[in-house]
Design a protein around this nucleic acid. Sequence first.
DNA 1: TTTAGGG
DNA 2: CCCTAAA
Length: 575
Amino acid sequence: METVVGVEWNDEGKDEENGVEKSSSALSSPKQIADPVIYKLVRVEGDGRLVPATDDELMEVGDFLEDDKSEMHDVADTVQTLGCMCNEGLSSEKTLIESSEGLLKSKNSKVDACKLNARLEECFPSSTLSLKDNHINQFGDTGGVPKPPDKMMESGSSAAAVCAGLNFDFSKLKGEICLDKLSIRELHEVFKATFGRETTVKDKLWLKRRISMGLTNSCDISTTMFMIKDNNLVKKGDDEGSKDVDGSFTHDPSVGTIDVNCKGSPSSIGSQSEDHQIGSGKKLRNHGVDLDSGSEQLHTEQRTAKRMRKPTKRYIEELSEVDSRDYSQRLMSSPKNAGLGQIAPRSFARPVRNVLSDGRTVVTRLDSLGGLGVHVPYVSRVRRSRPRKNVMALMHSFPARCQMSQFFAELEKDRQHSVMSRSELEENLRRTQADSSGDNSDDNVVTVPTAKGGMRRKHHRAWTLVEVMKLVEGVSKCGAGRWSDIKRLAFASYSYRTSVDLKDKWRNLLKASFAQAPPDDVMNSRKPTSMPIPEPILERVRELAETNARVPPNLGTSKPTVGSRNSQDTMSGYL
DNA sequence: TTTAGGG
DNA sequence: CCCTAAA
């Protein structure tokens, strides 16, 4: 399948790279403001390759999403820098893409998952894939036709991933998440668990892709530790993680090599063609006749690309709010992970006065979305009322937005979703009564009676896998305890997660990770509770817990915790 | 303000 | 999640 994927890369972690002593204060140093976030467009080939997007492609992206018959060109040697937030001229506009491309390119002839696996194995020897070795071999031996992960295997091998039950139970996955065998409904479960919101899309491939990307792409979570292989979520070895420390990011991108398609699936060939089908033929069904034929609400997910449309006021407001938020984000210590979040880099917000045909004048600001300069009306960040639920759909209609892959759009949605949470809720609350239309339904906000009288709002926002992963990674980078740092770094775009929340969640994760996985049977009893954390993640948590315990947050000379995880893996020198 | 722990 | 003590 040809998917244009924006890949974000930033030099977050530069400090580590340079081996510069990073005092705790360094994290919040203004210097970070200059840290760039760069988007590059790449295409994920059906065989898992990442191919840089060509100019043409860039131009086409919009159409791509909009035009069923559009096709991506296969030729490509230029990596486009779509957008560069903050400053240009970043030294290290390294490239995950490039490197990853080189890494994976070789196996283009045969669209064979095995190859890829083998390839990956080469690059991330031993420990890296330790978790998955059997898995890989299995695939390899079966000539690309993976053994269907079913219960049968579960018992025998830890590699077996089991995906059954309507309530997606990650705990049963023994370290891997297999998306292939899931039903649409199950995929919906996973999707929700992953992104924290529902989806109505019924396209399996679409779902799988989304989920996979959501879990692996660096855009949202640095892919330092997890990767999707053949539709399985796997944990990368520590040596990978150490990359941030020694500066060679180069390999990381490989993780971003989301190989959702070359699976994995019952028949590599079949799936392949299947993909193309989607890739060119029905194309996400964006406009197909079947586009939610008679379905309920707008399938926002599927509308990520409509025709260019003048941004609606609501959209503008949304955007403005985001901007303001970013501004106020206090020096934004690190754009990291803010990812596509920073839609409109502060630097580009220059008001411009325009005169409309009808005589009115509006002030617009240059919005550099996707590298394009667009003027959008400038309005106060204050929103009059809660945005419609599907405001996101509108967002996605916006031209520049289409520059980003659906994936980006998706993540963006996720982010947006999060953005308009707390503050907004409070705002609305303050606004008391008023729009009953602004149903609180979509905000998991309920008021709970508090012991001491009043009613208190209780934000119960289930943690999504993505968030958990970000948290884990944050801890690995900053160390447990430095919640505010982690908050800033990894959760800059998640306004509703406070450092305390992170702390609490981590506490829970620890608990979960050390509690031996209950026998499936018991667990199996349809536990409507929170989603189980995938084993790979729990494992990571354990590791971090250990290394953090052994090497208490030592401030001072030695870089606090960063790289502490290397303490264990002697394999580091390997790569 | 941020952390750490208890509720 | 919330609250609070302590730093």
